[in-house]
Design a protein around this nucleic acid. Structure first.
Lengths: 335, 335
DNA sequence: CTGAAAGCGCTTACAG
DNA sequence: CTGAAAGCGCTTACAG
């Protein structure tokens, strides 16, 4: 059905080897022959089969991007950065999305073992030490964003610092009953959320305050509605349970849900309740009141991830390194 | 380096054929042999090479998702729907992202010709008639969302209707100087934007009003900031140029940019200016004032796209059909 | 019940 | 300057 290299060879009156040489600019093919080959290629609209080519070259020109789920603005922004940067490249690379749900190890091994990509970029997904070693053994670069990974390149966002900034901001406003909202990914909290918790606790401790465990809440899906439900729960646990300051380390989307539900219940932001989010998604500046939040340079991180990938592709034995990006507190009206 | 079927065969003391049979549950392999094979597979941590398997089977278990650029909430929502639905499937399918920038034909042909996927879902990308025919000839299903495509399955969003709803809403508010903001994708407006324009013009015509050509504006990148810049331009073209009603068919993100810039310039929404957006992204309900907009069931469309893909994969000669989803006007405070 | 052989569509040393 | 041959790692009729 599809036209193969043999069809081209037949039409051009050469061997398929010559066709391959011509395509790859191998020196020592007459201009005349080349012309005949290209004419045949044109005529038949021939395109090399990507699978066959990849199989023999051991290279797919594809890069795997792995996340628990591609639903939050976090993944989308980083993805955008990767995509943007890839397009500046000469060689065309494809992006292969893998969502791990709650079985990241299986997916990660499937990618290396099945040779499904030339490299993998993980978003908030942490490979086990064995899996990282497996990638290394197979010469497949692994770039880990926002998680820990022994024996891989890592791009960290200083979550602890971001969280401290948020907590300090709430404390500076004289907030007493502080709540913390954390996200989970595929069941467990993950490094970034753990670090944010730590930063929060440290900031409180330095201010001579302890964290009330009943004021730490968890969400799962990063949906806006979860924030609403969560705040409803807080509010209904009696006046004692209602915080006057919330740091929503689970992100702006959830923070907005919380804010809407608070407004619906007649609780004024920021008079009665200060809210700080995380991520600074585009709409954070637009909600009412505009959301104070911690901004991370996600697009830049996506771009950087690609650059590190290219470096690693060119030099498989390159050193592992950790790149840390600093967050920034964006103060707006919600505190 | 990597372990192949031959390594397994050697260790299990059988031929590689038998290993393959065992893996695929071919009838007529002794339980004992099977056990030996699986033990060897386990021991070596063998995983079939995806490329080799795909090459010989002529099937990649991968689906291409094509868009001009994966940057707007539109693509993200649809993608989310596809991803969600795929995960309910028994067979594991991978998602391969292709951004076409402004050369969609080249990318589309590369996908079929290079056999890079089993099927393709296009988001607001329109294949030429020849390309659609090429897909058909290669037995590769093509599902086109929000664009026209002769000879392919099509999932349409009734853009004309949505636009009418928006225009009628503005007219009902007694707005006189109506502006229309349209998006473009890769240079040209695309079907959806054209349809929105048409719906807008029709609604105005029915109200005995003509559209002022100088009040039709275009944006390109769907970035928030473009909305700001655009409104600044409108405002600076003199009082005559400032509209009292804007239908931002280019989406909520741009509408929000417009709204922010209007606010910055002391123009009150909705008192001085009514704004209607398109898409109903999560934050639209949260901005101040909350944005009136046209909602499209994007996640559902993503899910449906996958369902149609599966159907087409099972029955390559299935009829082409057009599925139309109706939009819904969500009235909020911005009009 | 199991193995030898051909083939998927390509690339690339190796001869001539 | 060009072709015959081997091989990438699999699957699957076909024999035995």
């Amino acid at each position: 059905m599809a036209v193969t290299i043999h069809d081209v060879a037949r039409l051009a009156g050469v061997s398929h080897t010559t066709v391959s040489w011509a395509i790859h600019g191998h020196p020592g093919i007459t201009e005349a022959t080349k012309a005949r080959v290209f004419k045949a290629i044109e005529e038949l609209d021939y395109h090399p089969n990507y699978l066959a080519r990849s199989l023999v070259k051991g290279r797919t020109n594809t890069i795997a991007v792995v996340a628990s789920f591609f639903s939050s603005p976090f993944e989308m922004e980083v993805l955008k950065g990767i995509e943007q940067r890839i397009h500046e490249e000469e060689i065309r690379y494809g992006i292969n999305l893998f969502s791990t749900m709650n079985d990241s190890e299986r997916v990660l091994r499937e990618i290396v073992n099945g040779k499904r990509a030339d490299a993998a970029i993980l978003l908030s997904v942490s490979p086990s030490a064995e899996t990282a070693a497996l990638y290394r053994a197979n010469g497949m670069p692994l770039i880990v964003i926002d998680e820990e990974a022994q024996g891989s390149k890592t791009i960290q966002l200083n979550n602890r610092r971001g969280s401290r900034l948020a907590a300090e901001c709430l404390l500076a406003r004289g907030r007493k009953r502080l709540a913390l909202v954390l996200g989970t990914s595929g069941g467990n909290p993950g490094l970034s959320q753990a670090e944010r918790r730590r930063g929060f606790e440290e900031a409180l401790a330095e201010a001579g305050r302890a964290v009330d465990p009943s004021m730490i809440h968890f969400i799962e899906d990063y949906y806006f509605e979860e924030g609403q439900t969560l705040f409803a729960r807080m509010a209904e646990s009696g006046p004692e349970g209602i915080p006057d300051g919330i740091f929503c380390a689970a992100g702006d989307m959830i923070a907005m849900g919380i804010m809407l539900e608070a407004r619906n219940r007649g609780i004024r932001v920021p008079e009665d309740l200060s809210i700080v989010g995380y991520d600074d998604i585009p709409s954070s500046a637009l909600v009412s009141p505009p959301l104070t939040t911690v901004r991370q340079p996600l697009m830049r991180i996506g771009r950087r991830a690609w650059e590190e990938t290219v470096k690693a592709l060119g030099n498989p034995d390159g050193d592992d390194c950790t790149i840390i990006y600093e967050p920034q507190l964006i103060e707006r009206g919600s505190v």
